[in-house]
């Protein structure tokens, strides 16, 4: 575990930069994490995915699979990969301040 300063606040992150405590998260922090991961600006479509991931995680304790992300977030698979080219599920989880999804799908 490491402490890192994001958006002027000290937050604890894991080795890959995912927040350790989802409650540390806020929208300014999300913008900052996005910038650090190659997304200069979060559009409303980005937010739709990030919020869906976060809400689903907080409700169920697990992040949704890429399959349900494509079916239920309102953003289809093709667009998910345009918004998050380096992996939609992984990046949206990181930006949404939840742990890295552990599933294989």
């Amino acid at each position: 575990m490491a402490m890192t300063e994001v958006a002027g606040a000290d937050v604890e992150v894991d080795a890959e930069g995912f927040l350790v405590y989802p409650e540390d998260w806020n929208r300014v922090l999300a913008e900052e994490i996005a910038r650090e991961n190659g997304i200069p600006e979060l559009t409303p479509r980005h937010w739709q995915v990030v919020e869906f991931m976060r809400e689903r995680y907080l409700e169920t304790g697990t992040a949704p699979s890429i399959r349900s992300l494509g079916k239920e977030s309102g953003v289809p698979i093709k667009e998910l990969y345009q918004l998050f080219p380096k992996g939609p599920a992984k990046l949206a989880a990181k930006i949404g301040g939840i742990p890295k999804p552990r599933g294989c799908i």
Binding site: S65, I66, R67, S68, G70, P76, I77, K78, Y81, G103, I105
Partner: peptide, 18 residues
């Protein structure tokens, strides 16, 4: 139950993923 799609849908998912 593990959210693994049938073959047809899986190919579609991979195709749409690029």
């Amino acid at each position: 139950s593990l959210d693994i799609p049938p073959i047809g849908e899986f190919l579609e998912l991979i195709h749409d993923s690029g």
